[in-house]
Amino acid sequence: MGTVFHLDIVSAEESIYSGPAEFIVAPALMGEVGIYPQHTPMLTRIKSGMVRVKAPLKDNEEVYVSGGMLEVQPDVVTILADTAVRGKDLDEAKALEAKQRAEEAMKNKLSEIEYARAQAELIEATAQLAAIQQLRKRGH
């Protein structure tokens, strides 16, 4: 049974390939892997590179993926392609950046609150001054 399997290549932004395939070659982390139907379940990371797809009654097709994950089930193969350039250090740097931005924003918010408070006090003071002047006018 089964001379084809269902292949899905998806990225977070779009579906890149979806359909039957007889055979694919993907650039796995430990070297290229070729997958025929009824392959043992496998999970692996893939590097950026070309995925060669042989669809039934069609010529070989090549799809570029910029890294991601590959899941193999006997009759379903899924490639989860990354849209961003990944790396432990890169991710770490991004996280740090996001954190710093949040801290800065909190600080700015504080100064904004201070500013709002000062402004409120100022408005109150000017209102008081105006009221005093009015009273004086009436007094005279």
């Binding site: 977070a12 961003a84 991710d91 740097a93 996280a95 740090l96 996001a98 954190k99 931005r101 949040a102």
Partner: peptide
């Protein structure tokens, strides 16, 4: 603890990664 603003019109995975990772 983390924030991301100014995403524009398209959600950008690259930009989201950091904030989510935190």
């Amino acid at each position: 603890i983390s924030q991301i603003t100014g995403l524009g019109d398209a959600p950008n995975m690259e930009k989201l990664i950091g904030a989510v990772k935190v």
